[in-house]
């Protein structure tokens, strides 16, 4: 229990909801198949829009194509609008719960980690989601990249107390 408290107090990672003290963790559980289907849709989108392509990522970082900026920009626009509608009209989840949002606090990790991830993104041509999609398309060598990313996450967990946040 003590260890868990430490994690919560230093929480700068808002993607693990069960560790977020502000989040509603009493929610009803959805069967995994629901998220599997959402993932399949997302995977198809990632491949068909070619945002998982190493070539598109190189074009983006060299400012040679508008494609990636268009995809991310219009995705954010739709996201902002959706969240606004959900908040404004108090739209409930399909199980009738209130939709909860966690407020992120700034940490220096946003800068240092962000720069490191940017470097990795340009090298591999992939963020974590696209890694899974790339392997799905048959680029099996990317499995090595994924394994290395898992090790990277693990090493971060190992030394995070010593890193500036």
């Amino acid at each position: 229990m003590k260890n868990k408290m430490i994690t919560i107090n230093n929480n700068v990672d808002y993607e693990v909801k069960s560790l977020d003290v502000n989040a509603n963790v009493q929610e009803k559980k959805q069967p995994g198949i629901v998220y599997l289907i959402v993932g399949i849709l997302f995977g198809i989108l990632l491949v068909k829009s070619e945002v998982v392509s190493w070539f598109r990522i190189q074009e983006m970082f060299r400012f040679q194509s508008f494609h990636m900026y268009g995809v991310i920009g219009s995705a954010v626009a739709v996201g902002v609008l959706s969240v606004w509608i959900i908040k404004k009209f108090n739209v409930k989840t399909i199980q009738g719960e209130e939709v909860t949002f966690s407020k992120r606090k700034f940490s220096n990790g946003n800068i240092f980690g962000g720069l490191l991830f940017g470097c990795g993104w340009a090298l591999t041509g992939a963020c974590p989601g696209p890694l899974f999609a790339q392997i799905g398309t048959g680029a099996f060598a990317v499995g090595v990249t994924l394994l290395s990313a898992i090790i990277g996450t693990w090493v971060y967990g190992l030394i995070r107390e010593r890193l500036p946040h």
């Binding site: 959706s82 990790g109 470097c119 974590p128 290395s148």
Partner: peptide, 28 residues
């Protein structure tokens, strides 16, 4: 592959998210 992958895994967790978590969900 190896260094790039490591940066992706280490960097995203250090930053607390990736393109989906920060750039799409966070900005939304």
């Amino acid at each position: 592959m190896i260094v790039g992958g490591f940066f992706v895994g280490f960097g995203t967790r250090y930053a607390g998210g990736c393109t989906s978590g920060h750039s799409i969900m966070g900005l939304s």
